[in-house]
Write a protein that binds this DNA or RNA. Structure first.
Lengths: 337, 337
DNA sequence: CTGAAAGCGCTTACAG
DNA sequence: CTGAAAGCGCTTACAG
């Protein structure tokens, strides 16, 4: 008739085991766990020893029921843009010496996934290049700590943002191309409406084209991100009678596809057409691409995003907006010999 | 003096709210949630209505404390290999109509991350190309449902595996190259010890080289995955006095780097050197690569992995090992004109 | 500084 | 078929 407490999670060491091993209360162990004050050094030491001895690991979801889970959600709009790996590297290194752990999610529309992650008690979120409307993002920030990478939301005091100066980046591209003698510079952009960074790049492109006296050559083509759409959009541009002599693509992956289409059509790069990307990903350096691109330090952006998010979670209430200055990295794809 | 129950999670609708709204017990709502039997249609209906009305979402971590969290961990060894995106697409589509949600993690060594994810109550794991030793993986499978993609573990009855026939894939490559007149076919492999799929590819390469009477030309170079190491390894191969006339790279990303190095050195592809990859990722099709590769249907692998994992979680105990037959996709990088 | 008790939002036996 | 109670592993006030 003994009371039977079947351990559901076989072998899992709980806070109770640690407490009894150390000869202290459960609450004391919890305090040591959270680095809370009000524990003597000797008690802390005893608990630490027991935790090590028993290889104790706190169950995040149990902690989350009252406090934090020390889990951050990092959301990407897709898995194929190589730039995101750079950002992720930054996040990883920022988290390395903390007790926070990153879980990633991938979804074109972050909304549902964020809800699912909130159900799973994430402490906060980094949204990379979110395709959501600003209003939704601001509403979300009311519920949970939020940092946006690649989305302008200057007015909002509820959330932090991390960006490069996209307008400047686009200007640098146009300036570089104009300096190299290109005139009919077209831009390949993205047709996702809420993307504020794309709009900034378009704006920078327009402004600098005017500045360079090339206003009449302004031509923006907006395409989805699917390989099929991108290819047909680019093909259409390159087949037009008044073919541009330079193509500014909003991200490297598109630029690489543009190189492919142009090559397929027998056009020489940069003789017949210059091609420039954005993000300066590893593919730019490959000899088959030699792609001029704008470096926006993805790793730095990721690092700052993680830092800002943790600060938020730990209590900061004023918004911070981190901006890095981009620089152009010229390669053969846009240099007239 | 009224009892104050401060709602910690402001605005969160709980199972209790639903129960009182529907006029039933908390246990009844839980049963509807879990699709458990022993609930009348009318009760179920009442509960459903209340859940919708209140926009109720169960808190996964609270569920996890006793039952499941309906969360799967998908672990990748890195974020830069484009093949993993194909696998992920398959996982995503398999999960679309289920209540399971995938969270991704990225880590060269899955071990620590899996522990962190177990702390976060994931119901099971898909490990993509794990770099862990078999013993550790088997031990892990004793603790939690586990499916391996890209790792052979035939003996183990505790875990499921999903693979393409890597040995056959490598044979197809050698056969294709030999048919196209290449003789000195070298292989660029990976120096990570526990990788069973790489060993299978090496084995297939060796066997088929012998088969083709090219045994004396067998040459395997093992490199790490860092850009730097890969480039210097390939450069060394291509600069050697008895330069191979074909390079079989264990994954597309390496092959693309090989194209870069060869191009840099002024070698023509496929005239001076043929290059073949593995995985048939989207980059193979680009005109600047035109890379021959082995298609192993990443999406199908991901789909099967997700299916097997859910089956495991829901009770299957015998192991299943899914194998897809690879096929070679020939492109210009290995075709002598 | 330390600990007993209540509670987070669910699920799980167990009665009825 | 339905529900009251105990419990999952933690944290949080609150006493002492």
């Amino acid at each position: 008739m003994a009371e039977i407490k079947a351990p559901k999670r076989p072998g899992r060491v709980t806070i109770r085991d640690v407490a009894s091993d150390a000869g202290v209360s459960v609450a004391a162990v919890s305090k040591v766990l959270r680095d809370a004050y009000g524990v003597s050094d000797s008690l802390r030491e005893k608990v630490r020893v027991s935790m090590d001895k028993l290889s104790y690991r706190p169950l995040a979801s149990a902690r989350g029921l009252r406090g934090r889970t020390y889990t951050l959600g990092i959301l990407f709009p897709d898995m194929r843009n190589p730039f995101f790996a750079d950002i992720f590297d930054g996040v990883t290194s920022a988290l390395a010496r903390t007790q926070y752990q990153a879980m990633q999610g991938v979804s074109v529309h972050a909304n549902e996934l964020v809800d699912a992650m909130i159900d799973r008690q994430m402490d906060g979120f980094i949204l990379i290049g979110p395709n959501e409307e600003s209003l939704r993002l601001v509403a979300l920030a009311k519920r949970v700590p939020l940092v946006l990478v690649g989305h302008y939301e200057p007015g909002a005091g509820l959330l932090d943002t991390v960006n490069n100066d996209d307008q400047l980046g686009a200007k640098l591209v146009v300036r570089h191309l104009a300096t190299n003698g290109y005139r009919r510079i077209a831009m390949v952009s993205l047709n996702q409406e809420p993307s504020t960074i794309i709009r900034q790049r378009e704006l920078g492109y327009r402004i600098e084209m005017m500045e360079q006296g090339l206003g009449t050559a302004i031509q923006i083509t907006r395409s989805s991100q699917t390989l099929r759409d991108v290819q047909s959009a680019i093909r259409k541009i390159l087949e037009s009678p008044d073919r541009p002599d330079a193509l500014f693509c909003w991200t490297d992956l598109i630029a690489i596809e543009a190189i492919s289409v142009a090559t397929d059509m027998g056009l020489s790069i940069p003789g017949d057409i210059a091609i420039v990307g954005y993000d300066n990903t590893m593919y730019c350096d490959f000899a088959q691409n030699r792609l001029t691109s704008v470096d926006q330090s993805g790793e730095l952006l990721g690092l700052q995003a993680a830092r800002l998010l943790i600060e938020r979670i730990e209590g900061r209430t004023e918004a911070e907006h981190f901006v890095v200055t981009p620089r152009i990295v010229a390669r053969a794809s846009s240099r007239r010999s």
